[in-house]
Design a protein around this nucleic acid. Structure first.
Lengths: 205, 205
DNA sequence: ACGATGCTGATACGGCCGTATCATCAAAGG
DNA sequence: CCTTTGATGATACGGCCGTATCAGCATCGT
């Protein structure tokens, strides 16, 4: 059996074409023909690898969350060898902010899928809906550790604070996306909030 | 000239039909025919009052922001005659949370429009994009007043805090919408955060 | 009263979109 | 070598959607 090309790779290429075209025309406006053209292949090929549009969109979503995960990992890695809890938390939250073109597209499409998930039960059942839950768990964990190390302000509820931070980060992301706020001001808002969660630990006595 | 019906009223009826159908099938899935059927009128009528679909959608958006404003006003009014700053802030933020069916639809469609606005310059130019800005200004104002009355925790930056609260509220709203979080837990998160902004002023010494 | 005119309804048109069909090509196994 | 099977391309089909067209109706000014 001639298996001249790697299926998985091809699917990824097409998914990236989908992400690209959805990135500037909007997810609602992408058609199979657009994806095929963007990927430089024939319509038939797209059909061949993804029998139906729904499957294509689903795979595109998976691809998206994958890229998001990579981004997050890279950020945490870049936060330093033994990053303090606060740096870790910042890395986590900043990743969700659309600061450059790639993250803009990520956030935009992620939100598009979320909106569709409200009325589409197949999408609603997709794991990306509960991905934030694991993010929340991870963040809660970090905060609890920080609390044990007496790094937090007194009276902070780790669980509620984690949820609040994540929600704020998502909300700020949307604000940036629609051009209502600059990435810098969003960062300032986030930092201000973190100042009220973490103890001020700067070198100055 | 026979002007048997009130144009504005008819347009409102149709817009509400649009909101209803978009509410459960999703904004992307509504067609002129659906709107006409839901409103109990002919397709031609919808065309008559809104020459084009784009204009219908635009008017639907205006209608939506109008309803949202009413809701907000009602909430503030219901907050009491001389509501304390905290009650006022809570009323403001809770309004943005999709707690019942109507607010669910409001939030859902508002987000849908926001996503469309990312790639549609006509929508991006619409005032609803900057409406949150006036909300932020109003909230900042309330916080500043509260600060003057020494009702806030020390070190709170009113502007940044207002922005953060609004973003958090929006983010929590989306979480509720996609079924990731219950309205109750969202309220708990918000309240927890408010506890860290406002001085604890309960009767107990 | 009656015609001009705002209003309403049924139906047709062109286009795009997702999907299906059919034919062809390339390579691996016997 | 040649057949089988995976891979690819060109093209057709049915359906829906936004919009346009055309005919009929109800009402107000005179």
């Amino acid at each position: 059996m001639p298996k001249r090309v790697d299926h998985a790779e091809r699917r990824t290429e097409i998914a990236e074409a989908l992400v690209r075209v959805a990135g500037h025309r909007g997810l609602h406006a992408v058609g199979m023909r657009d994806v095929a053209a963007e990927a430089g292949v024939s319509l038939r090929l797209v059909q061949y690898y993804f029998e139906t549009k729904e499957k294509l969109l689903l795979f595109g979503l998976e691809h998206l969350t994958g890229k998001f995960g990579e981004r997050l990992a890279a950020r945490i890695r870049a936060a330093g060898d033994g990053p303090g809890p606060r740096a870790m938390v910042e890395a986590l939250l900043m990743t969700a902010l659309p600061t450059d073109e790639e993250s803009r597209v990520l956030h935009h499409l992620y939100t598009s899928y979320a909106v569709l998930a409200v009325t589409d039960r197949t999408l609603a059942a997709q794991p990306f809906i509960k991905d934030p839950d694991v993010a929340e768990a991870a963040l809660t964990d970090i905060l609890l550790q920080a609390q044990d190390a007496d790094l937090l302000q007194p009276g902070v509820d780790a669980r509620l604070t984690a949820a609040g931070l994540l929600a704020m980060s998502a909300g700020l992301g949307t604000s940036i996306l629609v051009g209502q706020r600059s990435p810098e001001s969003a960062t300032a808002v986030l930092d201000d909030h973190l100042d009220r969660v973490f103890r001020t630990v700067d070198a100055a006595s």
